[in-house]
Design a binder for these strands. Structure first.
Lengths: 330, 330
DNA sequence: CTGTTAGCGCGTTCAA
DNA sequence: TTGAACGCGCTAACAG
């Protein structure tokens, strides 16, 4: 491995000068700089980023901690963040927690040991509060997105969950569904409690009493959505706002089993606008979060050391599962 | 930041001893070790991995370079690799190339600058040969998977593409389809040329002449699959083996537009067993690669510095799109 | 079992 | 404009 010392020896100068020339320091003669650059090129020099980072006391690596990377939402969010971070010279270590608290703590801690420049973080379902984060992460700059803890320092990028759920529920009401329940997700997590509030407000603004017995929490996966939808059917629901697309998918499974016609006899709206929502039969209406923009915003907030909460609008994509009598499309 | 020197001073010993105690070196008195561990804990010491890696001349970070992380195949492969690497104390930097050669070269080069311990690599579509890899990567240990270049050093983990395509095509033949074409993918890439060979062999073993005009290359995305399927229909095909699931999905779009009934009048088999293949209407049969196992194998090959090619079997998942007259299921 | 010495490769004083 | 000297935090060789 070629070092700046090797270059210095070859040129009969000192490592300091080489270092300056390579760093673009103006206090070095143009002639010398050219000689150094030429020699570096010729000898195949590559800066040792480890040593450089150690000396400067900073790293050009950031960590991204998400529950899973095989979700359209998170993978697009990562792409959005990388598009900004890459330009700024940062690389990302991506960690999956698989929704497990243990794994999450280990990931945060490892990133801290690596002295990363910052951590982008969306917490897992098993994490019911933020108490584990700062002990594991220390004083590393934190940017949270989507699933955020309000009581932690640093920037927070969130979707307009209240408004999105409000719009989705209103859409179901306007479509003529009468007994609208919700697969509400994990209510200890803000994204889900916000969505529940939006759902409730939409009902009340339309003169429909909020009925606790139509709220089915803790189901965001296909299997749990399937089970909860069965309960919703038993409770007499004719529509569901699901706080996640996988739960909506499970609901579709249950409705098919019951031979209930969607959207004629049952309306369905999911959340996240996953790729597959467009492909099912019937396709699934969904409120989407614009993850790519959220990732970009998170990266910008990090680069500018901005604090505070940024809210990104959500968009309702109406598809077959709530398009009763074709009133919305075609 | 607390360093080993701080601990040493607090205990009236030298940094070396602290380092040894922390590293679990047996050449240190149990009593001393306890004192060090206790002090480290109390003072909130955290090892500086950068410094440690610099000194030891090795890194505990590996790079994973893939075209995209929002594919079931790649995300599961990454999960599989991480499951092994994590146990061995390695962390992964994940890089997406978005199928662009430029991005791929930059990713490899950045990983080299970071002196990662190894690189796991599946090349992008734009890379038609391996000439850019070693110049960008240098002497960093390389493990390739799925889309591999044979002429590069290091381990290679590949799916049984020939056999998988052979099985898929045979399945279409046995289902009674007569004019079977293929959306063959990019034939400069081995996974795709292997699949084409498997397709061809299956035809020939069943007495069906191989017809070049039924081979439609360069389509692995939904849009290009859609376009190629139109051409296949025009060419009189009544079935397609697609070397990718997204191309199969695009084919379904085209067939729906033509009001051609699948699987009654047209058979379809894709490749990769993406999550969505199960959800479409009709659902899409697909040959899957067992990505989680491939990731594990890749990680093991890296840890054991194993060279050579490892082949992972593929599995045909028969779904509606090729289940003519219900002869395969139910 | 522990201390001394000597760097890993780089960047940044301070002098000259 | 350049050089000399030092140290980031840690580990490893060699003594003792």
């Amino acid at each position: 491995m070629v070092t700046i010392t090797d270059i210095a020896e070859a040129l009969g100068i000192t490592p300091s000068t080489v270092s300056r020339a390579l760093a673009g320091n103006p206090r070095v003669r143009e002639e010398t700089r050219q000689a150094v650059l030429e020699a570096a090129e010729r000898m195949g020099y590559e800066r040792n980023v480890l040593a450089s980072n150690l000396r400067r006391g900073k790293s050009d690596i950031v960590g991204i901690v998400v529950p899973r990377i095989n979700r359209e939402f998170f993978s697009n969010l990562i792409s959005g963040a990388e598009s900004i971070l890459g330009q700024a010279g940062y690389r990302a270590i991506i960690c999956q927690t698989h929704e497990e608290l243990d794994t999450e703590i280990k990931a945060l801690h490892t990133l801290r040991l690596h002295r990363v420049a910052g951590v982008f973080f969306s917490h897992c379902i098993e994490a019911t509060d933020s108490s584990h984060v700062l002990p594991a992460l220390g004083r590393i700059p934190l940017v949270q997105f989507d699933r955020v803890f309000r009581d932690l320092p640093g920037a927070k990028i969130v979707g307009a969950n209240f408004e999105g759920a409000y719009e989705a529920t209103t859409h179901l009401i306007l479509s003529g569904y009468k007994r609208i329940g919700t697969l509400a997700g994990y209510l200890h997590t803000e994204v889900y409690s916000d969505r529940l509030r939006g759902y409730r407000k939409a009902l009340e603004d339309n003169g429909i009493p909020y009925d606790q017995s139509l709220v089915f929490p803790d189901s965001i996966f296909r299997e749990t959505g399937y089970a909860s939808c069965h309960m919703a059917i038993d409770a007499g629901c004719d529509a569901l706002y699901c706080a996640g697309d996988y739960a909506a998918l499970g609901s579709l499974d249950a409705l098919r089993e019951h031979r209930i016609s969607v959207p004629d006899d049952f309306g369905l709206v999911g959340t996240a606008n996953e790729f597959f929502t467009e492909l099912t039969n019937p396709s699934i209406s969904s409120v989407g979060q614009r993850p790519y923009d959220m990732g970009r915003e998170a990266a910008i907030a990090f680069l500018e050391s901005r604090e505070g909460v940024t809210v990104i609008p959500m968009e309702l994509h109406i598809r077959q599962s709530s398009n009763r009598n074709n009133i919305w499309l075609k």
